[in-house]
């Protein structure tokens, strides 16, 4: 028999690669939501349905999250995640692994929902609105070949989407690089 002191606590280790990748993708998604609501008329229309102010947060259960806030009719990505902000609506992946698989396009977002690997805290109807905005944000940010993993039906690639995509890239990468 082992001695009592040999039974050690196991503090969970950090998975730096996965959590960094998730952090970056969440950051892009947060900015993507902000840009989509500014640039894309469909996303703007969806956003108008949300109450004002309204906070939405997407991330890992008990972990990092990206938070966006609608205030004064504008959607803004909150760069500094303030612990005190209680989001009105939350989408949480139950584990870092699921988040990582989802963000690298190896687990589709509809599937994550169907498999209960994520949970929603808050009003489901508002979640529908946010999902539509995120779908638009994702088509804005990522090439169609990646988007295919995230949403049920990939919209046709139009010139407008291409132009918006370029503006979004400039806004996200340009601004964040020079700020």
């Amino acid at each position: 028999m082992k001695k009592k002191k040999e039974y050690r606590e196991i503090v969970p280790s950090e998975s730096w690669f996965k959590s960094t990748l998730v952090r970056i993708t969440l950051y892009l998604l947060g900015l993507g939501i902000q840009e989509a609501c500014n640039l894309d008329p469909r996303a703007k229309k969806e956003m108008e349905k949300l109450p004002d102010p309204f906070t939405f947060s997407i991330g890992i259960h008990d972990g990092i999250a990206a938070t966006v806030q609608k205030k004064g009719g504008k959607m803004k990505y909150l760069r500094v995640i303030n612990e005190k902000i209680q989001a009105d609506l939350e989408l949480r992946f139950k584990n870092l692994e699921y988040t990582y698989l989802a963000m690298t396009g190896r687990m589709s977002t509809p599937n994550l929902g169907y498999h209960f690997r994520q949970y929603i805290k808050g009003d489901l109807a508002r979640m529908m609105t946010m999902i539509r905005i995120m779908n638009i944000a994702q088509t804005l940010l990522f090439p169609n070949i990646i988007v295919r993993f995230y949403i049920k039906k990939v919209p046709r690639l139009t010139v407008r989407t291409m132009i918006n995509r370029v503006i979004a890239y400039i806004n996200i990468f340009g601004l964040s690089a020079f700020k």
């Binding site: 489901l124 109807a125 979640m127 999902i131 049920k152």
Partner: peptide, 12 residues
Amino acid sequence: INDGAIAFSPVE
């Protein structure tokens, strides 16, 4: 299309 149940439709 705004109803929560639509999220569980197998097609968009």
